[in-house]
Design a binder for these strands. Structure first.
Lengths: 148, 148
DNA sequence: CTCAGGCTGACTGCATGTTGTCAATCGACC
DNA sequence: GGTCGATTGACAACATGCAGTCAGCCTGAG
């Protein structure tokens, strides 16, 4: 029981998540360094790019499942670098909206042109059903871990 | 094409990996704090516990897929805390073997008694086949990302 | 045996992420 | 309108992880 098949599978899965997390960050850093970015900033840019009128820092943090402090530091750096700008939020006096600048938009699209071949190369001969199945399982685990 | 189903699935999977990585670290920290440990130290202890006569720091790092510097710092702290000890390595004068002390063994087993119910609770009604399928997919991606 | 290249420990700098605290703002309820 | 709890920004402390550097050890080809 201490080493039931399911238990070992789950622990192997946990180790695989740790490992692939590190590899994804490394690949992201490698792809993003051409435009002076990092994986973490790419993640933030990606979330902002999906919004229409900008997002607040805590909003980005919630979308990423991270602390707002971590996001705040990244947006502050990217604001200095000219990738994002802070705009007044009509709905909240203190919590400003983070928006992509023109340069930020360009960088985002430039990254897409690197990311797409990378994603295609990795999942080339992987059936869609396997991707969907793995995603469902992970989201199920995430849901359970987020609840309590 | 830019948003083919497979591409979207893969990007969602990437986000899920990032998210679950953070949640696993948080859960691990929560479970380990009772004995004064953290997720990172638990990972290292877990690898050492699987070996018979101890492992070198770079060996642990390779097993975890991490840099040896990160592991070295953790073992140094745990050595001060009395969880591990450094033993002479007959096969290498400089690279010592990291071994669990009696206290380290006790902590490891104490963590197991917390980890097992946690793992069971999370995978309770998840079929073994789904776990195995997701693990295979992740390992496949890991293999591809490690190769180049 | 010799030595060139790889492995290892030690140290540094940097990026990322969490938690905690405090004051200001927001929002909902009375 | 007033009040209280939640949200937010700012700042700090800490843990983790990577990359780079340097010097010492190890191994294998010659």
């Amino acid at each position: 029981m201490a080493h039931s098949p399911k238990r070992k599978l789950f622990l192997d899965l946990v180790r695989a998540v740790f490992r692939i997390n590190g590899l994804l960050l490394a690949d992201g850093d490698r792809m993003a360094e051409g435009v002076g970015l990092t994986s973490a900033r790419w993640k933030v840019i990606g979330i902002i790019a999906l919004s229409n009128s900008g997002m607040t820092v805590p909003g980005i943090a919630r979308a990423l499942g991270q602390s707002r402090q971590a996001v705040q530091r990244i947006t502050d750096v990217m604001e200095v670098d000219g990738l994002v700008s802070y705009a007044n939020n009509p709905r909240h006096k203190r919590s400003v909206l983070v928006q992509l600048t023109d340069q930020g938009q360009q960088v985002y699209h430039a990254l897409r042109t690197v990311q797409d071949p990378w994603a295609i190369g990795l999942t080339d001969d992987v059936p869609v059903e396997e991707l969907a199945g793995a995603l469902r399982l992970l989201q199920r685990l995430i849901f359970r871990m987020e609840k309590p």
